[in-house]
Design a protein around this nucleic acid. Structure first.
Length: 385
RNA sequence: GGGGGGAUGUCCGAGUGGUUAAAGGAGCUUGGCUGUAAACCAAGUCGCUAUGCGUACGCAGGUUCGAAUCCUGCUCCCCCCA
């Protein structure tokens, strides 16, 4: 049974023996996961958690995805703190759709309920909210690690944020969750559900937490806002290259969480380079198939290891005029952020024409027509016209 | 309600009237080394067809030859007491 797989990978299963009891009920269990609709991109870290949900589905259980639209819509009025920004309804709806599309690459659509928590949170009266709030104490909230840290660091915490755990707990009430899963950083919120559910006459959910995947920087949790993530929709070459860019110290965790699959005892190449290559192949193959993995590796070998131009270089028409002003061209065609940035790159030899560092910001047309223009190691364009 | 402290570039954080586009660090970028990475070395890191010009130190005004630095009002944040 695939639930075994999830069990093995979990960091916590609370309470002890709770999962077995739930499983003994002999009916499809309702396994809940909360989703933040402000950043709908499914990255490898999140995909890992979705895979655990899929483990449950394989055993016939039902997955309930809670899109936190209501929580996101409340947001933070000041706009100054570290809280999540308020998003437009339209953006949220768009995000939810985009998210679902990606999530169903992992989850079985037939065994998945997608719910928005505005459905029930939007109907609570003030009295209902107060009743809900009574199930939690301030002291317990402040025990939570990140609140405790922020509080002692004098970083603002708004009252609304303190309500998040009970709102999330109420989601469990509304959908009658049997199990809720999340990253280890969610432990407190998940446990809040256990406290609140009995107040509404429900059996408390079982809580399962899973390890947090570190990002491509090897330091911090993978997340979109930190820019250290790999999205599952990224093209093969990007994906392969980003995996290769992780520090060696992250190898072991990535291997365990993302590559091993159902063979936990499987050995890996000793040589870190070979090990990482195998990791990159597997991850790319998971999302783009064997063909994609080959393509990604070929690109990596050629461009990064051998320092050559990729096979298919996008074409870029030369603008009118002679000489050609390089900074503008780099901004328009190669994605350089500003002309000032472009000038710096040129100055430092980061811009190459046919492999030779560009000598000046203005180059004669004849030197550029048909030439290969390169910025840094990875951006290329073939100039035409 | 009373009292005190604070808001600086991507982030952290110096700077209390005059080369201050703003120390230092982190991050990031480029180049070098290399086994992808890391470590290490060097440079860069607001914008602009640019040996100059324009913007910039919470917001809006003011004082001054000159302000991130002084004054006034406003907004936001933190702490203590109630």
């Amino acid at each position: 049974m695939s639930v075994e797989n999830a069990k093995q990978q979990a960091v916590d299963i609370l309470p002890e023996g709770g999962l077995e009891q739930k499983l003994k009920l002999g009916r499809p269990l309702r396994v809940k996961l909360g989703v933040d609709p402000t950043s709908p991109d499914v990255h490898l870290g999140f995909a890992y958690v979705l895979e655990r949900l899929a483990d449950f589905q394989k055993a016939g259980h039902t997955v309930v995805l809670i899109v936190g639209d209501y929580t996101a819509r409340i947001g933070d009025p000041s706009g100054l703190s570290k809280e999540r920004p308020i998003l437009e309804d339209a953006v949220l709806d768009e995000n939810s759709k985009y998210f679902a599309e990606q999530a169903f690459r992992i989850l079985d659509r037939e065994q998945t309920e997608v719910r928005q928590n505005g459905e029930w949170l939007g109907k609570l009266t003030y009295a209902d909210t107060v009743r809900l709030a009574r199930t939690m104490t301030v002291a317990r909230l402040l025990e939570r690690d990140d609140f405790a840290k922020r509080f002692s660091a004098h970083v603002p915490i708004s009252l609304s944020e303190l309500l998040y755990p009970v709102m999330q707990a109420y989601d469990s009430v509304a959908i009658e969750a049997d199990i809720e899963i999340g990253g280890t950083d969610q432990r407190f919120n998940l446990l809040a559900g256990r406290d609140v559910m009995p107040q509404y006459g429900l059996e408390p959910q079982v809580v399962m937490t899973f390890p947090l995947l570190v990002g491509t920087d090897g330091e911090l949790k993978m997340s979109k806002s930190r820019g250290n993530y790999i999205g599952i929709t990224e093209p093969p070459a990007e994906m392969f290259g980003k995996v290769m860019s992780i520090p060696d110290k992250a190898l072991e965790q990535w291997w365990t969480m993302l590559a091993q699959g159902s063979h936990p005892d499987e050995s890996h190449p000793e040589d870190p380079m070979e090990w990482k290559l195998e990791l990159a192949r597997r991850i790319t193959a998971r999302w783009h198939g064997e063909e994609g993995a080959r393509e990604g590796e070929a690109h990596f070998t050629r461009v990064v290891r051998q320092g050559e131009a990729p096979e298919d270089v996008p074409e870029l028409p030369l603008p009118a005029g002679d000489p050609v002003h390089l900074p503008a061209l780099l901004v328009d065609g190669l994605g350089v952020a500003s002309t000032s940035e472009a000038r710096r790159l040129i100055q430092q030899g980061g811009v190459k024409v046919n492999g030779e560092p560009a000598a000046s910001v203005d180059l004669p047309r004849v030197a550029l027509a048909g030439a290969l223009l390169q910025v840094g190691k990875r951006k290329f364009a073939r100039l035409t016209g």
